[in-house]
Design a protein around this nucleic acid. Sequence first.
DNA 1: TGATATTTGTAGCCTAGGCTACATTTTTCG
DNA 2: CGAAAAATGTAGCCTAGGCTACAAATATCA
Lengths: 144, 144
Amino acid sequence: MRVPPTTLPAEPTHARRFGKARTAQASAVLEDYAELIADLLASEGEARPTDIARRLGVSHATAIKAISRLKREGLATARPYRGVFLTEAGERLAARVRERHRLVVDLLVALGVPAEAAEQDAEGIEHHVSDATLAAFSRFLKAR
Amino acid sequence: MRVPPTTLPAEPTHARRFGKARTAQASAVLEDYAELIADLLASEGEARPTDIARRLGVSHATAIKAISRLKREGLATARPYRGVFLTEAGERLAARVRERHRLVVDLLVALGVPAEAAEQDAEGIEHHVSDATLAAFSRFLKAR
DNA sequence: TGATATTTGTAGCCTAGGCTACATTTTTCG
DNA sequence: CGAAAAATGTAGCCTAGGCTACAAATATCA
Ligand SMILES: [Mn+2]
Ligand SMILES: [Mn+2]
Ligand SMILES: [Mn+2]
Ligand SMILES: [Mn+2]
């Protein structure tokens, strides 16, 4: 049957949007680990694989593999039985991610989302917020 | 060294947040497919695997495998060389996802995010927006 | 009609990110 | 000190979601 193609030749626009979302997803896990490690280092003085695993709700084996990936990407180092540390790059990433997380939560709360729902949604949303959107959130919070 | 555990016994709260984000991510792909198939059916009268793949920016083999998963989950049916169709459940999902997508884009645009950035970010954000947040978005758009 | 082009399907490979089970190392404490 | 507990690490398995390469079916059109 295949009706005449009215308008759908290459559609690079939609494809690019989905591709961006996929890329963002790929970095989401590492971002969460970096943010969490920074938090634990700040609040506890150290970031042990076991604590990281418990906070993320995954097995310690899963956490250790992710930490290996962080090391491979040059974001973290680890001393056995001494915990995980962030490299310069890891700290920069963590700082950026923490700030972004805070901004997303603040915006949701400002729009009337209950605190716990805001925290929960932000945990996923944060990884898909571009700089342009982040700037818009910031403007809104400042202006209201 | 292991300083005395000040406060971090079980931490089920953080774990639950991360877990929710992981769950949301798991359904993201199927949601996008359902939404896209509904769009293609509406605008072109049919949804061919090849067109789906092009719009998503993936190989046709990838699209076909995802379509198999849709079928397995009871969300779609397919007639070879006739394209893909949505079941009742698939249509309900698509309708919900489309509405949610629109609302997220509208909110971002209302906050001053440029149109294309809004579309791009929404493609990822939409999968992490709870009903509570959705309601807040809706209220904001109505009230301003 | 029959050759060619397109579409669809299959096979096999890869990585990320989960898991459990088991092994090893380090800490803790009686 | 030495045994028990805890933490860390390793091995092996699974699924989702990508890919390329090849095979088969269908459509198109000269
Ligand atoms: Mn997160
Ligand atoms: Mn976060
Ligand atoms: Mn999407
Ligand atoms: Mn969408």
